[in-house]
Design a protein around this nucleic acid. Structure first.
Lengths: 127, 127
DNA sequence: ACAAAAATAGGAATAATTCCTATTTAGAAA
DNA sequence: TTTCTAAATAGGAATTATTCCTATTTTTGT
């Protein structure tokens, strides 16, 4: 039986209304600004908790801090490997075939129905 | 004109014959064991150099240190989010359609022709 | 061989995240 | 509605991962 503490709810609430994949540091700063008593340890603990529950998604970055995203609807991510900006995109994979390939070729049993692609954004390409 | 120093070559050589996506720390330990004089700074610098050149791939992890992979042939990765093990798999995406979706929906201009999927492996699923 | 550019070693510094301990809180049950 | 206890928290120390710094060395082109 989970205890949904005030702090956990504040963190989740902020993620629900966020659309820009904030880092733990940004989440910490924002909930503090809104009056939360949450410590940094609490923020990290809850982000891990919520992402293990599958309520939010932890997005690993090529460089820099991880980012977090509330799972509104299933969507994919493409990440600029220069500036670390994360973009959402929708795409219908042939999940049945993807599932088959992964099951046949790896030891992975259970997996996400979205993918991560690495790229470079327009702005960074100019420089 | 790049200078392929002895250290850079040692690091690359090790990655070429590796099939288990080692971390920077593991690469450092192994080349040292083989007699390289490379410092940790040199290992990191060269891993970044090689991955910017597209010769190797830096794989961002959900938790723990990044991993590196020599690009033998294009292949996708599926990562166990519990134990961090990385598996390769081959899969033919409809790259034309994927490209179109990403270009239409995001600011990303140029991107990899492989994807990363998150999952849980058999072993971790048992526990 | 010489100069210039690039790369290195080694360690300090920074960034990101986890861990620790004493205290507080949420929720169940009486 | 008080009490009990597992779960959660605050705050900071510790750890991990990575980058940065500077003096020295090496590589490559001429």
């Amino acid at each position: 039986m989970e205890k949904y503490s005030r702090q956990r709810q504040e963190i989740l609430d902020f993620l629900i209304e966020s659309y820009d994949h904030p880092t733990a540091e940004e989440i910490y700063a924002e909930v503090k600004k809104r009056g939360s008593t949450a410590s940094k340890g609490t923020v990290y603990r809850n982000l891990n908790f919520l992402s293990e529950k599958g309520i939010i998604e932890k997005i690993s970055m090529l460089n820099g801090a991880d980012r977090y995203d509330y799972k509104k609807t299933p969507h994919n991510h493409v990440i600029c490997s220069k500036c670390n900006k994360v973009f959402d995109f929708e795409y219908n994979f042939n999940l049945k075939r993807l599932r088959k390939s992964i099951l046949e070729q790896t030891e992975i049993e259970d997996f996400s129905d979205y993918v991560i692609v690495q790229g470079i954004c327009k702005k960074c390409l100019k420089n």
